[in-house]
Structures are given as C-alpha cells and as structure tokens.
Design a binder for these strands. Structure first.
Lengths: 262, 262
DNA sequence: GCTACCTGTCTAGCGTATAAGACAATTGGC
DNA sequence: GCCAATTGTCTTATACGCTAGACAGGTAGC
C-alpha cells in the first residue's frame, strides 16, 4: 500500500552520527572515516552506510566530495524556529509573519474521559471539539485540538473559529477567563497528525496541554497542541532570583518576545 | 550477514500506542479499536497491527481477550512524572523524592561550534564537557550535557560534579550568575541516549537547551538536557493579564511547585 | 604521470517484514 | 439461541532493506 518505509540499520547509524556531530564528537570540518571503514566499524554493508550518509546530507550536516571524502559541515543547519513563551498567538503576529488557520474538523460530541475530567464536566455532558492547523508562511507548524463545553461553544460559529483565535472568541462572548494550567511534553506523530503537519509517522513532536478555567474554577477550554519542533519551540528568558537556599530561576515577565533567525 | 531485521512499521505503531497509553491518551481499562480498525487507521495490514500489539502485550501494557477486544491494563505503570517550570533541581528535592546523579563522562576539549557561539568563546578556547544522568527513585529520567569554559570548570573537581548541582558549584566558586535563556523542543533518542535512559532508539524526548550568562554577558554554562516525557514534563500555571489588545497569558511567579500524582 | 583512496552507481540475490485474505474460536448483546 | 464483532491462526504473494561485489569517475599525494 504505502511502501515508503524508512531503513532501520541505516537510520540507527544516521542517528548515531548525527548525535556525534551535534555533540562535538565529530567537529565541524573534520573528515569522517571512509564508507568502507564505517561499514566495517558498524558491521553493515556499504550501501547501508551510504543510506545513513544520504540522510545526513539531506539535513545539510555533511559535505560529500567524490574522491576526497565526507566532511562535517562547518556551518550548522540553522534554526527557522519561531519562538514564544506562554502566549501562543499574539507574539507571532507581532513578529510580522503571516500565519493562517485551517479548520480541519468541527463537531459536538462526548469528550474523552481525560478531557471531561480536566474540565470538570458532568457525566454525559458534551463538548465542541475542533481540530485546527496553524500555518506560518504557508507551512504547517501546529496541530490544535480544542474542547469547549457545549453551552460555551454555541456562542460563536464555525466560521468564527476559522479566523479568530479561540480565546478572543470566548472573551468576546462574555466568558471571563481567569487562569490556566499547562504541561509541556513530547510525543510521536501519528498518521493523521503526520499527514497534516507534512511529517513522517514517528517524527518527534512538542506537545502542550492547557486547561483554561474561569473565576469560579469551572473548566472553559481544553487545548491540546502538537508542534513541529523544527518550526516551533518554546523560548524564555530567566533571571536568577532569591537568596541562599531559596536561590532559583524565575521567568522574566514575558514581553521578551524573542527574535528569530528566520 | 545478519538478516534478523526488526519490524519497522510494527515497531512504530508499537511505540505510538505505548506513548498514548503512557500519556493517558488511552486510559487504563479502555478498549482499543479492533485490529481491522487499527489496520485501516494506520494504513497497514492486520498482521502488522498484531505484531505491535504482541509487543505491547509482552510489556504487559494491554490485555487481549479473544472475542471481546484488546484493553489497556488497569494496572498503571504510568505517571511517575515529575513537574517543574524553570528551576529543575530544587523542586524535585522539595518534593521529597530521592534523586541521584551518575557522571557518565568528564573531559576538557574543544566544544562544537554551536556551543562556542552560544557561550561567546574565542576560537580555540576549550570547555569542560560533562555528561550526567539524573535518576529519580533509581530510574533515569534525564540526560544532561553541560559545557563550561575551561577557566571556570577548573574551580571544582570531577568528584564535586557527581554530587553537587552544577550551578551551586559555580556560585560557590564565586561566579556570579545573572540571567539565562532557554528553549524547549522535542527530538528522538539516539543510541547512546536511548541506552542511558533505558529507552528504545527512536523514542520521543523533551529537549531543553539553556545558556547561562554572567553580569557582563559572558557565557558561563551551556546545558543541553534530554528528558523522558513519561517521567518528566514541564508544568506551569498561567494567569490572564493585560487589557484589550495586549491581553495575554503570563506565568504565575513560580513558587507554584506543582503537586504530582504520585 | 602514477597510484591509492575516495565517492557515485550499478547488479544480483537473500531474508523477512508486510500485505491480503480465509477460516476457526471466543465473547457479548439482543 | 442467534448474530455480530472480536482475537487467534493459518496461507500465499509481494515489497524492500540489506548484503556482497564490481566498476567508473574524482581527488590528492608522491
């Protein structure tokens, strides 16, 4: 059906070499052992070694010169990464990049137990579930799944959701947003997400789960976001605060919208 | 020569499902979609799905009942996750969990260009590079690689590093730590890291890169940390601040050491 | 120029992961 | 009891990752 399966041994060697390059084990400009030598060293055939090197070359981590050898690129492959701390939307807009939203799905249904729990819903209560894709300069970087209790979700239209940030919609509807908790983790791309984000299945993703509460502690919104780490990362500035045993890092009051290299 | 190649698609699906179970996407006791449904969803054959489920069963993560279905084991191996925002070390200690450090490597050498850049080193200047593994209740959860300029690294011993947090060592040595920048992303486990963290190659990892600066802006420490997302995640509390167009999230002053589920 | 080593490209073949489908055995709901 | 859906166990065929080797072309040192 598919056929485009990635190699396995080749992939391992690719990851190994990539790690060595990234960690300085193979300094920039240095020459790698010849392909036959690498093949012998790793106990694989030369074809497999070449596959691994192909991937490194595609990442622009190495330069291959026929007759001469394979060299670690002196110039690192750069960082098209966007940046942000807690406020996802506005900073991007401020940075002047054109971002877009594509609404992939929109429906009212019974939420998964984990979501119902987090929002403090009664058994059987339904939510509005929407899946949106966020783009920057036309390239998708974020896959957002939100759940909003049905009664709140009815205060705006599907059309609204495809254009206006959800929190703005909520506050426009008179909902008072008070506080939120969020957790950042990592996961792998499944088939649907991989497809939407233009990735291969099994690619690493940044995951963010945020639960938004109103003043009385009732759940307002459950957001699950998946980010392509090569196009998006969380950046923040810290300052050293406290004294003695209580000395610790504390985040700088935001505002520090980080510049990006793009 | 070899021939015993591991499954590939099956392995991916295995990792994917394992991740979903571990992260609560598939709650304990819940029933998985049927094998034909999973096969269709992932675009693979049922045999492949069964291979993935075989692996999960071997991990005792699922129960398979012929005629009934496949269920996530209620016995939860899950959620020993730690939590924290910016100050990695102290909160864990406060939480009363026994944490440990294992020093994996310690040497002075020329750093990779990215590190030298970030620290603002002169060409040819060397750094002390150390790799440490952090454990919680005996289980590894974090793989730390630090670079410190040679002149600063010489103020403490290898033995110190294996027991005392690095920042404490630095401040004890009279170094003034002022501010830092950090970025959170996601990546895949390479061979060495996978081995150290007791993971399979290709597992997802949280990555944190922090650069610490002194009062005059000189680089003091470059930290690259990789976390097992099932054992560690970043959590934070946000409050809604600002007015009108400037309305945004802002992190709660820390202190809010988040409780964990034990 | 000559030589040694390198990457680039091709061939042939093996082992196995995967696909596609059939059928049996079990379970649970009606 | 009956029926639908499930897992368990086969079969056959295909796809492809990997091996092993040969050969061409480029590059650098002697």
């Amino acid at each position: 059906m598919d056929g485009s399966v990635e190699p396995l041994k080749a992939r391992r060697i690719y990851l190994l070499l990539k790690e060595r390059i990234g960690s300085g084990g193979l300094p920039p400009g240095s020459r790698l052992p010849g392909e036959p030598a690498l093949a012998a060293e790793h106990g694989v055939s030369r074809v497999t070694i070449r596959r691994a090197l192909d991937m490194l070359a595609q990442d622009e981590l190495i330069d291959r010169r026929a007759g001469s050898g394979t060299f670690v690129r002196s110039h690192s492959p750069v960082r098209p990464l966007v940046a942000d701390l807690s406020n996802v939307l506005s900073h991007i807009v401020e940075m002047g990049r054109r971002t877009g939203i594509r609404l992939l799905s929109f429906a009212y249904a019974h939420p998964p137990a984990a979501v119902a729990d987090a929002l403090g819903l009664k058994a059987g209560e339904r939510t509005q579930r929407s899946v949106r894709l966020r783009l920057i300069d036309g390239a998708p970087f974020s896959y957002l799944t939100t759940h909003v209790p049905e009664r709140i979700g009815l205060t705006y239209s599907e059309q609204d959701l495809a254009t206006v940030p959800l929190l703005a919609l909520l506050e426009r509807s008179g909902v008072t947003v008070d506080r939120a908790t969020q957790a950042i983790g990592a996961t792998l791309a499944g088939p649907e997400v991989a497809e939407a984000l233009d990735l291969e299945i099994g690619s690493p993703l940044l995951s963010l789960t945020r639960v938004v509460y109103g003043p009385t502690g009732e759940g307002i919104e459950h957001l699950h976001a998946l980010y392509r780490p090569d196009r998006y990362s969380f950046e923040m500035e810290l300052s050293r605060a406290g004294e003695g045993a209580d000395r610790r890092w504390s985040p700088v009051p935001v505002a520090a919208a980080r510049r990006d290299a793009g």
